[in-house]
Design a protein around this nucleic acid. Sequence first.
RNA 1: GCCGCGUUGGUCAAGGGGUUAAGACGCCUCCCUUUCACGGAGGAAUCACGGGUUCGAAUCCCGUACGUGGUACCA
Length: 509
Amino acid sequence: METNKQVRVRFAPSPTGGLHLGGVRTVLYNYLFARQHNGKFILRIEDTDQTRFVEGAEQYIYDCLHWCGLTPDESPLTGGPFAPYRQSERKPIYYNYALQLVKAGYAYYAFDTPEELEAMRERLKAANSHSLQYDHHSRMGMRNSISLSEEETIQLLENGTPFVIRIKIQPNETVICNDLIRGEIHFDTSAVDDKVLLKADGMPTYHLAVVVDDYLMQITHAFRGEEWLPSAPIHILLWQYLFGLDNMVKWAHLPLILKPDGNGKLSKRDGDRLGFPVYAMNWTDPVTGELTKGFKETGFLPEAFNNLLSQLGWNDGTEQEIFSMSELIEKFSLQRVHISGAKFDFEKAKWFNHEWIKSASAKRLLPDITTLLNNNGIDTGNKNLFEIIDLIKDRCTLLTDFIEHTRYFFIPPKTIDVASIAQKWDEKKKTFFESLIPIFEKAEEWNSITIETLFKAHASTHEIKIGELQMILRVFLVGCKAGPGVFHITTILGKEDTINRIISGIKQL
RNA sequence: GCCGCGUUGGUCAAGGGGUUAAGACGCCUCCCUUUCACGGAGGAAUCACGGGUUCGAAUCCCGUACGUGGUACCA
């Protein structure tokens, strides 16, 4: 074990649109691990499938990582010592390695057309074969450099016949994946198929590209979703054939994030169906124009998003659930990453956000809230938003809740909830409020304590219980029975606004 | 079908031979507040099943069931 090697980890997404929360969690774990070990976090773009190119998808990934604060040390954007970091720009590299494998007898040319492959599967299905794979059973019946004579192969190659390069899997061998999270996993190569390594367009498949690039970019640890586990033997064999097992990355397969109801991997569709975001940020499909909501726009704080993601598959063994980024960097450990998948619970996700909003300073929240309110037609210019945020943040689970909870500070209620106070309203109370106005007008100081004192003194001279009066005042000011202490509200509203709303309220009853 | 992985309340989970099987979310009750929250105090609810091993199993072993991932010239 080369313990002195600098830790280098990578996130290698395919830019096909949207960034799933599971992807962000993979980024997070990579990032935490890199920071904890003073290593490097690399972003590599796996764009080898040219048929799946999506406009803007790569930029979107940068935007998401930026919002989350999980920015890579090396990427196509920032560059780095192992550039290029976009696989489409590394195309020639892979061909040479594929060729090397063919020469060594670990891979071979295959000339089968998609139709022939389909026919093969049909044939195997009809024969009741328990494997429908292109493998040691079936490859002799196909058109490839193993089944064909050398002359035929050369002829086909010289004729420019389209070909792929497939790995040649030897049956009856055991490949062991030593997973950092799950321990030893054994695979019998008899059940592994001859996967395509190099496609007919000269691009590598994922299998070849990860191995080659992880080696070339000196990656030390490879974290990826559990869905990759079945193809691990291919990658391990490739490492063995190309670069040696001693140089191989250490693998860690992360548990899946499952849909809340039923079972299966959480997908964008589940979010649409159940009404919660799955992507980090809003994503608009450039072709269909369809918008998929993101956590950011739903009103999540990036601190909360990272925090909740960190707990979806890991905990530190104590009762602590709220972690700052620096705590996570300090405490994260692969040993405590779970083995089994977790169903995503949006209620719990919101709880995390609520906790972060409650403990956030008004200063931290101010820029986000200002933008949010302004975008929603609320002019915050003449009021102390700082103070308002402090007053109401406890009742905001999502950032977007600030709209509803701050609106009445800026905009007088058009109508008030008459029904909630109508029964308590009588001539005596009307007189009380009418005579309250000149008292307020004459008030020299306008703060929560003096207003309350004035109000209560006036109530006692009228011999009315203050409770009901406060409720009425609240509805006059806010429009409904909600919000923080009513005298705090009058303070922020100011004398003029308070009096105007009382006058307006009396008129509506 | 075949191969891999998994299974502690509704959900997230701690616990890895002896525990009254933590805690959190959600739900319910009460207190605080003549509002809504926040906060506080309680409550209901769990080791998939069957065999072993053991004085003793949620914990170790083997089966079974169920779930899930893969089985593309997608990643």
